[in-house]
């Protein structure tokens, strides 16, 4: 009887973990999930497995996931321009595009970090680790991102709906050694 209750709790916790909006909450639910599952192991008479599950499932993997989340949060954007810009702050106030992109990323729990570069876009693409690379010419905006980055899909959706009037060109690079997301 008790086993049934806890097994149903397991399923409910798994569904809750899948349906959360924030990834950090999902990690916490997963920790609770492994704690409950270790208790179920105990009820079925496997204390050895229960100890291992409790330690590895709820301590080590939870901390690992949290560290991974913190690492993934920083979103670096490289910005290059054709004309020689003088002041970085002036540039940001002049283009609402960048500002909107930043607010959108903040809303998605990321920490956007814009790096202004004077190098040509080819060098940036080849050498730097970037999540987004933006090349701003007079008429067009070229945006480069990783093909397998799911954040880039969201950015693409957002830009196409809100900034459809600008000449946007979205390019997807293959995941290389240098430009890992």
């Amino acid at each position: 009887m008790i086993e049934d209750i806890f097994l149903i709790t397991l399923v409910i916790l798994a569904i809750i973990a899948l349906n959360t909006k924030k990834l950090r909450r999902a990690v916490v639910y997963l920790g609770v999930f492994s704690l409950v599952s270790s208790f179920v192991y105990l009820l079925y008479g496997a204390p050895d497995v229960a100890i291992a599950e409790a330690i590895i499932g709820s301590t080590i993997t939870t901390v690992l996931y949290l560290v991974a989340l913190r690492k993934y949060k920083v979103f670096s954007i490289y910005y290059t321009n054709d004309s020689n810009f003088q002041d970085i702050r002036l540039l940001k106030s002049e283009s609402p595009f960048l500002y909107n992109l930043e607010t959108f990323l903040v809303k998605r729990e990321m920490e956007p970090q814009i790096i202004y570069s004077r190098e040509p876009i080819e060098t940036v693409l080849a050498q730097e680790k970037f999540d987004l690379a933006i090349h701003h010419t007079d008429q067009d905006i070229w945006i480069y991102g990783c093909a397998e980055d799911y954040q880039f899909d969201a950015v693409e959706d957002y830009l196409l709906t809100n900034h459809g009037d600008l000449n946007l060109h979205l390019m997807r690079c293959a995941e290389g050694e240098d430009n890992e997301a």
């Binding site: 204390p47 050895d48 100890i51 291992a52 330690i55 301590t59 080590i60 901390v63």
Partner: peptide
């Protein structure tokens, strides 16, 4: 857990993971 592993539940792996969690919580 490690030293009593032959007689009771536990053993090398589980005890080692507990010891490792000391270092991991040190990171916190």
């Amino acid at each position: 857990l490690i030293l009593n592993g032959h007689a009771s539940p536990g053993g090398g792996f589980q005890g080692g993971a507990v010891l490792a969690s000391v270092f991991i919580t040190r990171y916190l």
